[in-house]
Design a protein around this nucleic acid. Structure first.
Lengths: 339, 339
DNA sequence: TCAAGTTACTTTAGCGATAAAGTTTGAGCG
DNA sequence: CGCTCAAACTTTATCGCTAAAGTAACTTGA
């Protein structure tokens, strides 16, 4: 293994002090042109690369961000990661990736790892509420920038947030079904987290706005998994008079719902129109392409990255911000909007 | 921002030397039980967390791996990342993620970033050959572990490799079509890289093994993009007597091919059976679920992580290994194998 | 009883860099 | 001609931690 080139070596070969080399590389103005040139030449000759670890130790800045997501198999989170990576890399930051597998214990270990590695900031991808409030407070208390994406738990952790307008998600989906002429509109609700509740609220608001009286049996408790949507839809199929449109709290649930509908020998969208939320990758390649309400995860990631880097790179602590990424409808076949 | 707890602080409060604290935390046996207990108590009281940056500087080991992939929107690479993350994290390593966007310049910048951050090892995800051989040699020359996944370029870079058996991919796909009773078997070739060539070789071998004489016009120059497959299929549709089966070099190309077939008012698989390669996520949710030859990317990632960590954590330099991940057929509707 | 070990620590040095506080040299000036 | 000052460097201290080399106090053994 070849010896690495350090400032010491450069300084040694030139007979100058290490500090002189450091100053040249940091563009200080108290070094003469001749010396500067000699140092630069040596740097090029030896292919010197600064040791970021040493630099981090003195500067107390690692130029590294951490990101914790619950799952990498879901395109959702990957797109967020991609967004963060793009801005981090463009600004010269590294990105330490952690995948918590939806496990609070692992999330805790991940946050620990990031903390020990002295990252300058942490992006926390959406996950179910977990008991790691203490860690988060600790992190942000120690000057580590923190951004939470799509999370409204940990209300007392002071940090920036990038969230979706879930109320609007529910409203857009439901209003779209109304526009398609559907009137018996069911909702497959998600799990007991704010996102899902807000989407349900949006559903109710849109119904009210359209002057439709919501039947209580139109709302089926479901979940975010395909199986949840399937089971919920089975139950909704028993409701009389028959449902003619469903808004599922997310896309996997909507896919489950479609499977249940087909099993009952009904057609999508002719008999029942389906709308999901979240726009999973390849959602447009399904047997019946799925209409969904979407928002850019990549933008969420980018905004998160920007929030955090701005906070890190500007001195005085500014107010914590909350960026709302607006959703939009992606009309496809399952709602009858597209032939 | 609260003061961070360092060994110095602990030592100070207890009136012992910093080294004593260090020794306790590193489980050295030349510290008395009483002192050990006092230190441990203080560590717990102050919630001390070691500073990995300082540790890395002295130990010359960052306990961090880097991974460079060309694209995060392709599930392919994400799964590899997930595999590497899993083993890295399980063994206490962090993972620095870089996405080169298929751009050799960015790849170079990424490798630079990883090098400066002194990562212990680098996993290089598949990408087109690029001119960064010098960087790679440099890295591995400086004792950084290097694993290349699915890359056979840079033949003179000495490192571990995890590859797929592309020849077998081509053979499996083609033999499967033969088993389905197809005889006029076209191949949509990929771009001019070894993987694609080997898959084409496998196609030829399987035809020969089945005693089928391959017509030259059965092989259409294509690519790895959906549009490539679409265009290639358009051309293949003009071949007489009509093709009754196609093996596309990868799944996106196969999807493009199916679109072209449908546009020609033909059916998949009744008129033309289609087989892809790579098993993209959700491939089973397509209008006509796609038969494909697949292999576990997650396993590729895991194996890569293991190779690299083993190399890092064992002293003497062992021989460079080459791990071959075997492919297997995933039979779905597009080849007529499943109803 | 005293040299030779142990035991349980402490001191010193160094990882590779930066920042703050010197030091030397020559110029400018009254 | 001596004094001040700026320019161009160097020295010293430090970041937080570990490894190697001390060093006291206490055993041990012949």
């Amino acid at each position: 293994m070849a010896r690495t080139t350090t400032m010491k070596r450069i300084a040694g070969q030139l007979g100058v002090s290490i500090t002189t080399v450091s100053k040249v590389l940091n563009n200080r103005d108290d070094i003469g042109d001749a010396t500067r040139a000699r140092v630069l030449a040596k740097v090029a000759e030896l292919g010197y690369q600064p040791n970021a670890v040493a630099r981090s130790l003195t500067l107390r800045r690692t130029h590294t961000l951490g990101i914790v997501v619950p799952d990498l198999m879901h395109s959702f989170f990957v797109e967020i990661v991609a967004g963060v990576e793009a801005v981090a890399s463009a600004r010269g930051y590294g990105l330490l990736l952690c995948c918590s597998n939806e496990d609070p214990k692992k999330e805790r270990a991940d946050l620990d790892l990031l903390r020990q590695r002295q990252v300058d900031g942490v992006v926390l991808g959406s996950a179910n509420a977990s008991g790691n409030t203490d860690m988060l407070k600790d992190l942000s208390g120690h000057g580590v920038g923190l951004v939470m994406i799509d999370r409204d738990d940990h209300p007392d952790v002071r940090c920036d947030r990038v969230v979706t307008d879930d109320l609007e998600v529910g409203r857009l989906a439901t209003a779209h079904l109304v526009e398609q002429g559907r009137r018996a509109l069911a909702h497959i609700a998600g799990p007991a987290i704010v996102h899902a509740r807000r989407r349900a609220d949006g559903y109710r608001e849109a119904l009210a706005a359209a002057g439709i009286r919501a039947h209580t049996e139109w709302i089926a408790r479901g979940g975010f998994m395909e199986a949840d949507g399937y089971r919920a839809m089975k139950r909704l199929l028993g409701v009389k008079p028959r449902i003619d449109g469903v808004f599922a709290a997310n896309d996997p649930a909507a896919i489950g719902a479609m499977k249940a509908i087909w099993e009952a020998r009904l057609r999508v969208p002719e008999d029942i129109a389906v709308v999901g939320a979240g726009d999973i990758a390849l959602g447009d390649l399904l047997r019946v392409p799925l209409t969904t309400v979407s928002w850019s995860r990549e933008e969420q990631g980018r905004r998160a990255g920007e929030l955090i880097l701005d906070r890190i790179e500007t001195e005085g602590a500014s107010k914590f911000r909350r960026v709302i990424v607006p959703p939009h409808l992606v009309a496809r076949r399952s709602s009858g909007a597209v032939a």
